[in-house]
Structure formats: structure tokens, C-alpha cells
Design a protein around this nucleic acid. Structure first.
Length: 557
RNA sequence: UGCCUGAUAGUAUAAUGGUAGUACGACAGAUUUUGAUUCUGUUUGUCGAGGUUCGAAUCCUCGUCGGGCAACCA
């Protein structure tokens, strides 16, 4: 009871506080949020934060969320991205009330521009791009308005009509809002709101050759949809006065913009531009290469939607710049996988063990699928005289505190017997060929009458029953905590060992039935899932995340 | 040297004038047929200087430091 109460009293983030106040005061009867991606790249974990915020807020307060594609720049946007974004949002577990596109509103937006011109609040400017930039001034010097701002309403209307009709080439003219060239906030220095682009749009085709800019599309789209809380990242703070200015002068529904700090994560880059470079320049194989921080990559790698939502919840929502520890994300996925993943025994780097006093031909041992699971389901594993264990689980001259197999030392074979090492057989070159052991028949798991306690338990597979698979082990993509903040190109800091492929590992036979939507814990190794590159002939597994390994830490000391 | 923002343990995040708490990490220990999980403990913090107040992370003043803003990108 106490616990539950604590959970309910969890403090609100600053946006939840605003929403609660707006609901309490009656400013809003319901809330409506939106998630507004531009379809020019794949969604990443930073977007996941935004998705969880927008959809989570609506869910919590009984409102709804629209998915709206911010597709006002035809040259970078593609349908491929639209599809991947929808898949990712759904996979994360969210349902949108409506699927909209900023391009749905192009006619309306055009009318808004006409309205502004009629109010003498917008004008067609013939200046070149560089001229406009120069006239804008600098943060410390005010800008200057040019002669085009003097054009009559009629002339502006005519020119804008001509722009739409395709009478001008790209860049020849723009439509600007007439706000304030001397404003301290540079966003207000007569921002461009329409530009000419003779480009094919992924939805409207060739209907338009003029396209609205972000500032003249986003807020208006919010307003058209009656979005109550329009949540975006911090870099748009300086745009907010403009956002409000358009709404005020167009006299349309007053959506409100609120800003939070975007997610940064250690050993990761999070800009779509940089991620696109990684893909295009082949540093990774694709947008969903499991080393990428994209949602599709996490999905392929074996992350669960639950774990990502949990992560989003734990990092919170704030306005301060942040750099989240990757280990927090890893904690979240380990926590979930520990509960749901079935255990399997897989030997990565085999060392043959022969049990000299073992003669049974067909023994089957039984092992639990998941000790965390309430329902204690089990599976059968064939045992035999010749087994594989990990090379690293044997030391001829054991280090201090080495609890595993060594000459004369005893270990437990998981779910089977205690064995004792009797002899080490070597190859001509001095390397270890195999290890000979004896087993203790009375030590069988579940029926152990030996009275012995051993410190180590090893995973193993029967040589003649083992099946093989390929493993892909992933490490962080960058060598440094904050690649974007280092000197030079961020790509110089790519970790050359971010992908390790083990072409053949030996697994217990039950892994043959592995399914794409299931997660596995390879005992003492890590969490794995079947990769889409698997075929009838070859199973391929991705390591989602390793298990914590305090022994490896001990060795480093 | 303009405008806008922000500053609490290593990293995040609470405390909304009244005991600076939580999580991750790190470290130590207990349990363990996974050196996993679980459990216990330890560690480290209010950017600085003034002020208001019985009392300040919180309010005020002045600094310092970080981030953003000068794309026909979003």
C-alpha cells in the first residue's frame, strides 16, 4: 500500500504541471498533442523520448495524439521514411488518433499567406539569398528592411500568385513576414515564409512549386488540428514569439508551444545528419544496423518497447542540457530481459571435456527456462560423455579466486553433474586439446546426495548434439563519451571493434526452435535474439546486451 | 558581447520557504546450480558572493559557467 502510494505521488515534470494547471483552470477541457517528425530519416532514441512524452501525456490525461509528418521540404523527404516512422511509433506501443501531413494543409497555408499580405504583414522579396542574410544584421546589430518591403498589397498578391503559377525560378523570389527587422530575436527579422522549389513532393506531386517554411507550417498545422500543447525541443525557444505572432495575426486557434531538452547519450551521436553520414559512408550497414541508436536498430538488436519506454520514463523531462549514461539504457533492457528471456546454453569458444567414467548413451537433463518466471517451465537437454565448455572456463594454472575448472578442481555443470578435472591433454604445439574429467554420479542436479559444495557452475553443450549458429556481438559505436563535442570530425572517434562476429558457436539443440519475437539469455553470456539475416542453413543471433560480468572486472584489476 | 535559456553527487532526476531524497554507476559484503538475478551497506551534491527570513536548493541582487539564435533546413 505504502509502495503504491509512493508510485502515485511520483512528482510531475514541468510539462505535466502545465497540463494539470490548464485542465484545472479550464483553459483546456481535453488535451491534444502531436508527434511531428520530418520524414527525412529514421527515428532515433531521442525521438523515442519525444514520442513517449507526447503520447504519454495524452494517455495520462485522457487526451489524444496526432501523428503529423512535417513534410514541407520536398527535396529531402521520402515515403520510405514515412513508413519506417509509422512502424517505429507503433512498435513503441502508441496509437495515433489521426495521421496527418503538413502537406495536407498546403491550400490552407496558402490562404493564410494571402491573409497576411492583405493585412500588409507579408511581402514578396526579390533579393538574393546572400542579400537577405546580409540585411538581417547580426545578433548585436539590427537588420535593415529593403525596398521590397514597400510593395503594395496588390503587387504582393499578384507576385505571390505568379510565384505559385511557376513564373519564377527557384530562389528568384520569396515571401517574407513583415515583423520587425530590428528585433533582438533574430527569428523575428522578417522571416522567409514561402520559397520557390520546383521539386516533386512525395504526396502532393507536382501540384506546388512554392513550399512554406517550418515557421509558417508548424504552428499553423498545430492550430488547424486544435493541438493544445505543442511540445518541441529547446532549439525552438527563439521561434516561439514567431509561433505566437502568426497565430495572433491569423486569428486562429491558439496552440501553445513548450520546449524540453533533447536527449543526448554517451558514446552516441544523435543527429539525423550524422546518422545519415554513417549509413551513406558505410560505417554501418544500414539505418537498422544494430549499432545505430535508431529505434529500428534497437528493435533489430533485441531491445523491447517496454525497456525503451521505461528508459524514457527514468530520464525524465527537463530544460537543462543532459548527457545520459548509456548504462542506464542497458540497465533498462537487462531488467526487462531478465524477466522474459528463456535461458539457453551456448558455448562461444569450445574446449572439449571428456568424462572418462561416464557411459550412459542417452541421458537427458532438465533445466528451468527462466528462474525469474512464476511458471517454472523447463526444457530437456541431452548430456553425454563428450562436452564443450568455454575455453575461458578452464585454467591450467588457475588465478586467485578462479572458481572454474582447473586440474584437480571441481565445478558444477549447470543442471547436470559435478565434475573434477583429472588430466589435461595437449597438442604437439603445447596448446590444450582436451580436458579429461570424472563425474560424480550422486551429484546430479535436483538429486544431489554428494554433500559437496562447489563454487563454480559452467554452461556446456554435448558435442554430438550441439547445433551451430553465428553470433554478432556489438559494442558502443564510438570510443569517446561525447563524439560530437570532440575536436575534428566525429567519425574519427568510431570504435573499430564495435562489431565482433563469431561465425560458429555451439548451442544446445533446443535453440533450433528459436523464434524472431523471442528473447534468449545465453547463460553467463548475455541476451540474444534471432537476426533477420538468419536462413534455413544458418541461424544468426544478435547480442542485445551482455550480462554484467564482475569476474571480468576482477581480472582487469 | 545583443536576445533567449539553464545550473542539485560521476550521470540523470526529486524536494514548489521547513530533515537535500531516488535511480543508474562505482565500491564492499550476503545469498546463489548463471561470478547473472536478488538483498544489504558505503561513497560523492545544492555554481559563487552578498541579501531577505526564525529558517533558503527554493525568494532578491550581482557575478561565473553551459546551451541555443544570424539556412530559401526542420
Amino acid at each position: 500500500m505504502e509502495e503504491i502510494k509512493k508510485e502515485e505521488e511520483k512528482s510531475l515534470n514541468f510539462i505535466e504541471e502545465i497540463v494539470e494547471e490548464d485542465l484545472r483552470s479550464g483553459k483546456n477541457k481535453n488535451i491534444l498533442t502531436r508527434f511531428p517528425p520530418e520524414p527525412n530519416g529514421y527515428l532515433h532514441i531521442g525521438h523515442a523520448k519525444s514520442i513517449c512524452l507526447n503520447f504519454g501525456l495524452a494517455k495520462k490525461y485522457g487526451g489524444k495524439t496526432n501523428l503529423r509528418f512535417d513534410d514541407t521540404n520536398p527535396v529531402t523527404e521520402e515515403t520510405e521514411y514515412v513508413d519506417s516512422i509509422k512502424e517505429d511509433v507503433r512498435w513503441l506501443g502508441f496509437e495515433w488518433a489521426n495521421e496527418f501531413y503538413a502537406s495536407d494543409y498546403f491550400d490552407q497555408l496558402y490562404e493564410f499567406a494571402v491573409t497576411l499580405m492583405k493585412k500588409n504583414l507579408a511581402y514578396v522579396d526579390d533579393s538574393k539569398s546572400e542579400e537577405i542574410a546580409a540585411q538581417k544584421g547580426t545578433p548585436t546589430e539590427p537588420g535593415k528592411r529593403n525596398k521590397y518591403a514597400e510593395r503594395s498589397i496588390e503587387e504582393n498578391l499578384q507576385l505571390f500568385t505568379d510565384m505559385r503559377a511557376g513564373k519564377y525560378a527557384d530562389g528568384e523570389k520569396v515571401l517574407r513576414a513583415k515583423v520587425d527587422m530590428t528585433a533582438a530575436n533574430m527569428q523575428l527579422r522578417d522571416p522567409i515564409i514561402y520559397r520557390i522549389k520546383h521539386a516533386h513532393h512525395h504526396r502532393t506531386g507536382d501540384k506546388w512549386c512554392i513550399y512554406p517554411m517550418y515557421d509558417f507550417a508548424h504552428g499553423q498545422s498545430d492550430s488547424i488540428e486544435n493541438i493544445t500543447h505543442s511540445i518541441c525541443t529547446l532549439e525552438f525557444v527563439t521561434h516561439r514569439p514567431l509561433y505566437d505572432w502568426f497565430i495572433e495575426h491569423l486569428e486562429i486557434f491558439p496552440s501553445k508551444q513548450y520546449e524540453f531538452a533533447r536527449l543526448n547519450m554517451t558514446f552516441t551521436v544523435m543527429s539525423k545528419r550524422k546518422l545519415l553520414q554513417l549509413v551513406n559512408e558505410k560505417f554501418v550497414s544500414s539505418w537498422d544496423d544494430p549499432r545505430m541508436p535508431t529505434i529500428s536498430a534497437y528493435r533489430r538488436r533485441g531491445y523491447t518497447p517496454e525497456s525503451i519506454r521505461k528508459f524514457a520514463d527514468k530520464i525524465g523531462v527537463q530544460k537543462r542540457e543532459n548527457l545520459i549514461d548509456l548504462s542506464l539504457l542497458e540497465f533498462c533492457i537487462r531488467e526487462h530481459l531478465n524477466k522474459i528471456a528463456h535461458r539457453k546454453m551456448v558455448v562461444f569458444d569450445p574446449l572439449k571435456v571428456v568424462i572418462t567414467n561416464y557411459t550412459d548413451e542417452n541421458e537427458i537433463v532438465v533445466s528451468e527456462n527462466n528462474p525469474e518466471d512464476e511458471e517454472k517451465t523447463t526444457r530437456e537437454i541431452p548430456f553425454s560423455r563428450e562436452l564443450y565448455i568455454e575455453k575461458e572456463d578452464f585454467m591450467e594454472n588457475p588465478a586467485k579466486k578462479f572458481f572454474r575448472l582447473a586440474p584437480g578442481q571441481k565445478v558444477r555443470l549447470k543442471s547436470a553433474y559435478i565434475i573434477q578435472c583429472e588430466e589435461v591433454i595437449k597438442n604437439a604445439d603445447g596448446s590444450i586439446a582436451e580436458v579429461r574429467c570424472i563425474y560424480l554420479p550422486e551429484s546430479k542436479s535436483g538429486a544431489d546426495t554428494s554433500g559437496l559444495k562447489v563454487q563454480g557452475t559452467l554452461h556446456w553443450v554435448s558435442v554430438k548434439h550441439a547445433i551451430t549458429a553465428e553470433l554478432r556481438l556489438y559494442d558502443r559505436l564510438f570510443k569517446v563519451q561525447d563524439p560530437s563535442n570532440e575536436e575534428g570530425d566525429f567519425k574519427e572517434y568510431i570504435n573499430p571493434d564495435s562489431l565482433q562476429i563469431i561465425s560458429t558457436v555451439y548451442a544446445e539443440p533446443s535453440l533450433k526452435n528459436a523464434k524472431f519475437d523471442e528473447r534468449y539469455q545465453f547463460l553467463r553470456k548475455g541476451y540474444f535474439c534471432l537476426d533477420k539475416d538468419s536462413s534455413e542453413e544458418k541461424m544468426v543471433f544478435n547480442r542485445t546486451v551482455s550480462l554484467k560480468d564482475t569476474w571480468a572486472k576482477e581480472l582487469k584489476k
